[in-house]
Simulated assay, not measured.
Amino acid sequence: MNTRIKTILCVAAALAATTAASAMSHPVMLEDQGSFFAGGVVKTAPGAYTGQPLDRSGETLHGDHAYVFYQKPVKAHQNALVFLHGAGQSSKTWETTPDGRDGFQNMFLERGYTTYLVDQPRRGKAGQTTITHTVTAQPEDQMWFNIFRLGTWPKYYDNVQVARDERSLDQFFRQMTPNTGDFDQEVISDAMVAVLETAGPSVLVTHSQGGGPGWETAMKSDKVKGVISFEPGDFPFPEGEVPPAEPTRSPFPAQGSAVSMDEFLKMTKIPVAVVYGDNIPAEHEHTDNWGMDNWRIRLNLARKWVDIVNRYGGNAELIYLPDRGIYGNTHFPFADLNNKEVADVMEQWMKDNGLAE
């Protein structure tokens, strides 16, 4: 949207009166909002275009781009927030929570930040892919329930910060969306660089699988002024310094990836935070609960990564929410019942690191 607009967003009183929870708790004056595609490639079929409807010779295919929806409030902070989702998710991750409350999109818009919500290439509204891929219908809701640390199906963890009614759980499961093409970190990070060219100076906020392409984006783009990564499982280490994979009961072992020292040192030039929630066993506390053990080894890897970034002169911080007195968080701390407390921690970290001007 090129024209300046001023829009007040609010929830109608009648709607609020009929729901247990509602999003957009404060009216926001917007200067601009819109959507766009960023990055991607164009492939051309062999041969010369003939104009025949079933002859694809010479025709083009635009794909592997990102989709972005943005909102800019009046008098916005200098740095925007660019949000990248995790595995099986889309930008819905950051929108209204499964039980109908403000997600981080609304929360930080209300706090004066421009928000850019991204669907990564080959996912969600960015589903146009340039490679052939088969999407299978696979029953796996209970796997996600376990690995996302809501509990061990069908029982929730005693302190877990999620609404436990059937509708909220139904909404949570329906957030899952398939890849339309193979996950490709290079493709995603290239598209994210293009997103940043439009967004300008930004704090990149990633979740889970989005952490890998997030680090790569930060190494490619000088528009990334800081990174906040919620529960990532992949980290870039200097060549020759990648820790060995740690044994786990989880079928999804975690291991760092190797990058050149020149690339790694780029991560030492910006402030970085990695954030983990609750119900993760202690460092050496192996457990047969694979959903928990999966995150024990990822948290251990995060500790090693933060240490090595700081050893090379960087500014990395591990934020383990129980250490802040915040308990019961799942793999989605930004959508849990206590997500306002989590947002406060995130914003305070930005203020402490000069990113919230």
Score class of each variant (00 low, 15 high):
Gln71Pro: 00
Asn2Tyr: 08
Thr115Trp: 01
Pro121Ser: 10
Thr152Asp: 12
Gly58Val: 07
Lys43Gln: 13
Ile5Arg: 10
Ser90Phe: 06
Lys351Met: 08
Asp165Gly: 03
Leu61Asn: 02
Arg167Val: 14
Thr130Gln: 06
Trp305Arg: 00
Leu299Gly: 02
Gln348Tyr: 00
Val259Asp: 07
Ala258Trp: 08
Ser25Met: 11
Gly226Asp: 10
Ala21Pro: 00
Glu283Gln: 14
Gly63Ile: 02
Leu337Lys: 13
Asp288Phe: 08
Met192Pro: 00
Asn2Phe: 08
Thr129Pro: 00
Tyr312Asn: 15
Ser257Ala: 11
Leu61Ala: 12
Tyr67Gln: 00
Gly40Ala: 09
Gln52Glu: 15
Ala76Trp: 04
Gly214Cys: 03
Ala245Phe: 06
Glu31His: 12
His133Phe: 15
Ile270Arg: 09
Val41Thr: 15
Gly103Thr: 07
Leu117Asn: 04
Glu31Ala: 15
Asp344Tyr: 01
Leu321Asn: 03
Val41Leu: 10
Glu263Leu: 14
Ser25Leu: 14
Arg164His: 03
Arg4Phe: 10
Gln255Ile: 13
Gly277Val: 13
Val306His: 07
Asp99Val: 11
Leu337Glu: 15
Ala16Ile: 05
Thr268Asp: 04
Phe145Tyr: 01
Glu263Ala: 14
Ile326Gly: 04
Asn300Arg: 14
Trp305Cys: 05
Asn289Ala: 07
Gln52Thr: 12
Gly127Val: 01
Glu241Val: 06
Met1Gln: 04
Ala273Thr: 04
Gly39Phe: 11
Leu15Thr: 11
Glu239Met: 11
Pro244Lys: 14
Gly256Ala: 08
Gly233Gln: 06
Asp352Val: 03
Asp141Thr: 10
Pro271Tyr: 09
Tyr49Cys: 09
Leu301Tyr: 03
Ala137Gln: 13
Asn159Ile: 11
His133Asp: 07
Ile280Met: 06
Lys266Val: 07
Trp349Ile: 04
Pro121Gln: 10
Ile188Pro: 01
Asn294Glu: 13
